[in-house]
Design a binder for these strands. Structure first.
Length: 573
RNA sequence: GCGCCUGUAGCUCAGUUGGAUAGAGCACUUGCCUCCGGAGCAAGGGGCCGUGGGUUCAAAUCCCGCCGGGCGCGCCA
């Protein structure tokens, strides 16, 4: 069921205002605009059921009255009533011209409504514990966050991306402890070291205690200990960032948790909580917030501990301080990407912040990536490391590139293979709505066939090939009228016209999968067009040019969509 | 136990916020490279949209109950 709506032109807006002006007692919200289930039934559909009811006007009469109103010149060619629907047929040649023109004029900006102009967005994402190489499950956070960052930038927001470096805590303490025992510990050895440290802590209370002691010294600002923590976490962070960079994920700011051990402003917030009777020292000497005093109604999750009995801070304390800091950066949109396991936690800190007059960040939650065999577990060894996946995908892609692009240099071939590998993983993860679990199937993610990132790149490569073979620059002046002969051409135009709407929809819902779905639709329609409509092999020069322009507009739209997903488009593959 | 999320073809997922005949890909069957790139296209089979009620002109979509899956629930981060 396609519900394409022509957003590029203001036809929808015009229809609404015309109807509102012609009928008393209705407003724009009463008028629904959708589109017919089949291209044969027209391009825009207006269901009249509720209008007829609201106006107390028999449906056939209402339809009769509406038909001349919505026949908006010169775009609407024909209006028909089918059952309770008013179906509008657009003038393909005029509408297509307008749309293709817009795409070619706006090129890399086509799709943006600039809704974020003059506004600022702050996005925090990824925050993988610096203790291991990231697996694809963890990377879902980074991919969603990165894609949203691209969306916000695309819409004109002044966007800053933050990475919160969790360089504290008992786990890191243990890691620092054991790193002192291993010579030349590097990023590759870190996971093993981490696992070993945890095992030892379980069996050796002495060792565990050292971990805590080290953490306490770190908190108290012991310079030497701080240096040790920094050294280990920095090495780990660098390694992780290298892998993430392969995916095209980058950050503007790295904020270290250890810089938020003490916060005067947060202490003032705590005074507010105290005044509300929400802050107390519990029976085990922990500094605790009783959220029920702030409006929290559940018993589960009612208490939120800020400091241990020995006075050391908990993650929640530091994160509250950090969140306050972020709030002062003046962002209109303050967004944080979190795994679904943080839902209650975020609710808790949001309650604390808002009860002291702060605006909490807007969370985007995502569910875990599962393997067919079940959950990913580092301990059980059934994880798919991001770097491993990229390596195998890249090798597989290289084989095909070597066959198909023999004339290219080795470096170019490698580059393309890497681009294909990245698109395979990014698309496989991003195409699924964040709130749903992703069942990750390595086999199909590596197949590059069907609804995959490489398929999208492939369809672009085909367009580029056509444009290359044409040999000349395809100019941007669109003929009037623009010839549209086949349904496939028209369907392409319709799909392209949806893109700005899709972008807005995606950013409103903070859901990149909407873009992914759009890219797939567009690619399918294009390949269908490709097989039915010859571009270079047509005699009439006007048709050839028009189709070349349609190809160019399709490519531009596809590249813009893929850019938002962090997928780059090779010239050939 | 309580709370949040989720259930659509054998499998992996869409379904533009309540609209017309529920759509793709994988897998299976059948065609299509002397023709702009077969990482492709065209066609076919395959559905009680978890289940039982309700709301209305209209429900995969909204509300309630039940069942299955994911996540969480006081010194982890």
């Amino acid at each position: 069921m396609s519900r394409s709506v022509f957003k590029v032109l203001d036809i929808v807006k015009k229809i609404k205002s015309v109807l509102v002006n012609n009928f008393e007692g209705i407003n724009e919200k009463d008028i629904l605009i959708s589109s017919p289930p089949d291209i044969k039934l027209g391009d825009i559909a207006i269901p009249l059921f509720s209008l007829s009811k609201k106006l107390n006007f028999p449906l056939p009469d209402l339809a009769e009255k509406c038909i001349p109103c919505v026949k908006i010149e010169p775009f609407v060619e024909k209006v028909e009533r089918v059952g309770g629907y008013l179906n509008l047929y657009l003038n393909r040649e005029i509408v297509a011209r307008e749309i293709i023109q817009q795409v070619l004029l706006q090129n890399v900006q086509f799709g943006s409504s600039f809704s974020g102009k003059g506004k600022k967005a702050l996005i925090e994402h990824t925050s993988i514990n610096p203790n291991a190489s990231p697996h694809v499950g963890r990377a879902r956070n980074a991919m969603i966050g990165d894609s949203l960052s691209r969306l916000f930038r695309f819409e004109g927001y002044d966007t800053e991306v933050h990475y919160y470096v969790n360089d504290m805590g008992r786990q890191i303490g243990l890691l620092v402890l054991i790193s002192g025992e291993i010579e030349n510990l590097d990023f590759n050895g870190i996971l093993e070291a981490y696992v070993r440290a945890n095992q030892r802590a379980e069996n050796d209370p002495e060792f565990a205690k050292y971990g805590y002691d080290l953490l306490a010294k770190m908190e108290q600002g012991d310079e030497e200990v701080r240096k040790k923590f920094f050294k280990v976490t920095e090495m780990c962070l660098k390694g992780q960032l290298q892998v993430l960079k392969r995916l095209g994920v980058e950050y503007d700011f790295f904020d270290r948790e250890s810089d938020y051990i003490e916060s005067e402003e947060l202490n003032k917030v705590l005074e507010v909580l105290k005044a509300k009777g929400a802050l107390f020292i519990d029976e085990e000497q922990r500094l605790t917030v009783d959220l029920s005093r702030l409006g929290y109604t559940q018993e589960e999750g009612r208490y939120f501990v800020l400091r241990r009995a020995n006075g050391s801070s908990m993650y929640g304390y530091r994160d509250l301080a950090y969140t306050i800091y972020k709030g002062h950066r003046g962002a209109d949109e303050d967004i944080i990407i979190l795994g679904e396991d943080h839902k209650l936690y975020l609710q808790q800190i949001s309650l604390i912040l808002s009860s002291a007059g702060y605006k909490p960040p807007v969370p985007v939650f995502y569910s875990y990536i599962l393997l067919k065999e079940g959950k990913m577990s580092t301990r059980q060894g059934n994880v798919v490391l991001l770097s491993d996946f990229l390596d195998t995908a890249s090798v597989l892609a290289l084989k095909r590139v070597q066959e198909q692009c023999k004339e290219l240099s080795k470096e170019e071939q490698n580059l393309i293979a890497e681009q294909v590998a990245v698109s395979a993983i990014r698309f496989a993860v991003l195409r699924v709505t964040p709130t749903k679990n992703v069942i990750f199937d390595i086999e199909s993610a590596l197949s590059f066939e069907g609804d995959t990132g490489p398929y999208l790149q492939y369809s672009c490569a085909r367009i580029k090939s056509i444009l290359r073979k044409y040999g000349k620059e395809v100019h941007d002046d669109i003929p009037e009228p623009f010839p549209v002969q086949q349904n496939e051409e028209w369907m392409l135009v319709r799909k392209i016209s949806e893109f700005p709407f899709t972008v807005l929809n995606s950013i409103e819902q903070c859901n990149p999968s909407i873009i992914a779905g759009f890219a797939l639709d567009l690619a399918h329609i294009f390949t269908s067009f490709y097989h039915t409509c010859p571009v270079l092999h047509v005699d009439e020069e006007e048709i050839k040019i028009a189709r070349l322009q349609l190809c160019k507009a399709t490519l531009q739209t596809m590249q813009n969509a893929l850019y938002l997903l962090g997928i780059s488009v090779p010239e050939r593959m």
